[in-house]
Amino acid sequence: MERTRGPAPRRAVGEETLTTRTTGDYEERSRLHDTFTQMTLSLQEEAVARGSFEVAFPAAAEKMKRAILQLKKVQPCIPPCGIQEASRRFHCRGCYSTVCDLPLDCPVQDVTVGRGDQAMFSCVVGFPLAEEEIAYSWSFAGGGLRTRDASYFRGMPRARGYLVRIRPVQPTHRGTFSCMILHDQRPLARLYFFLNVTGPPPRGETELQVQFREVLRWAPRDAEMIEPWRPSLGELLALPEALTLGNLAVLAAVIGLASAAATVLVWAFFRWYLSGD
């Protein structure tokens, strides 16, 4: 069944505009749409064979009139999005039909879920769908993106049906989920859900982080009792980095001062001793 968003040639009889309200009327209007197409082709063939539309038109017009009169009154389009076959209008004077002038892409819905909880997305629209040949296709744009750009989305082969659950929710799930509703492989609507993950990490992870911080702050109880290392001169000289030029110069200066001090002390002692005699 073909769905058009603009004018297309159709066979008509009166001037009234009709549509449907329920899923059953959805099927009926779909059949009527196909009948319009077939009727137009048959009318053209018969007109070519008889040489005039005036001869072929009356029987076709009467048949189509009976089909149109069985339809219910027009149903208004249900915003904000979707190709709504159930609201198709047949414009008899212009010989064409139209569907709601609404975009295929629906607005993004925001969903906020705490980390570790469950997220649920329902791919449901407000207008009626056919009972058969309805399929759902899911995709995901990660990295925290809130977008409707198809180039960012990747398919989710394991997601099937109109309802999808994610549990437990993790920060990696933050992003936009998209659901495409198809009828007979033709898109009817595309829904978007932006998942925002909030809240603290799970309890187990929190406990692990607390233990890690305690290890970083840990110190031995007997740390005050540890005596500092006081190496001897021999131990210092035994170190590989001890015998540098700077250290040797300092060591020579210390030895020279010590010798001079010892000489002065010995001289002062003998002078004191001799002065006493």
Rank of each mutant, 00 (worst) to 15 (best):
R3C: 03
T4G: 14
G6K: 07
G6R: 10
P7Q: 14
P7Y: 10
A8C: 08
G14T: 07
L18M: 11
T20Q: 15
R21Y: 06
R21F: 06
T23Q: 11
E27Y: 05
E28S: 12
R29Y: 03
R29L: 10
M39A: 13
T40Q: 13
S42H: 11
L43R: 07
E45C: 03
V48W: 11
A49P: 00
A49G: 05
S52R: 13
S52Q: 08
F53G: 01
E54W: 06
E54V: 12
A56W: 07
F57E: 15
A59H: 02
E62L: 13
M64C: 07
A67G: 02
Q70D: 12
L71E: 11
L71C: 09
K72H: 11
K72Q: 13
V74L: 14
Q84A: 04
Q84Y: 06
E85T: 14
S87C: 15
S87A: 15
R88S: 01
R88A: 04
F90N: 01
C92W: 06
R93F: 09
G94V: 05
C95T: 08
T98Y: 01
C100K: 00
V108Q: 04
V108E: 06
D110H: 12
G114P: 04
G116I: 02
A119R: 06
S122F: 06
V124N: 14
G126D: 14
P128M: 09
P128T: 08
L129A: 05
A130N: 09
A135P: 06
S137L: 09
W138Q: 01
W138V: 01
G143Q: 02
R146Y: 02
D149Y: 00
A150C: 01
R154F: 01
P157W: 03
A159C: 06
R160K: 15
R160E: 14
R160H: 11
G161K: 10
Q170P: 03
H173G: 03
H173I: 03
R174Y: 00
F177R: 06
C179W: 04
M180E: 12
L182D: 02
D184A: 15
Q185S: 13
R186C: 00
R186M: 07
L188V: 07
A189G: 00
L191C: 03
L191D: 01
Y192L: 01
F194G: 02
L195M: 00
G199A: 06
T206V: 09
T206L: 12
Q209C: 03
Q211T: 07
F212I: 09
L216A: 10
W218H: 13
A219E: 15
P220R: 15
A223K: 12
E227F: 08
E227S: 12
P228G: 07
W229G: 05
L236R: 10
L239Y: 08
E241P: 05
L243S: 10
N247Y: 05
A249T: 13
I255K: 07
A260T: 06
A260C: 06
T263N: 11
V264A: 11
V266I: 13
Y273F: 08
Y273C: 02
L274A: 08
S275L: 14
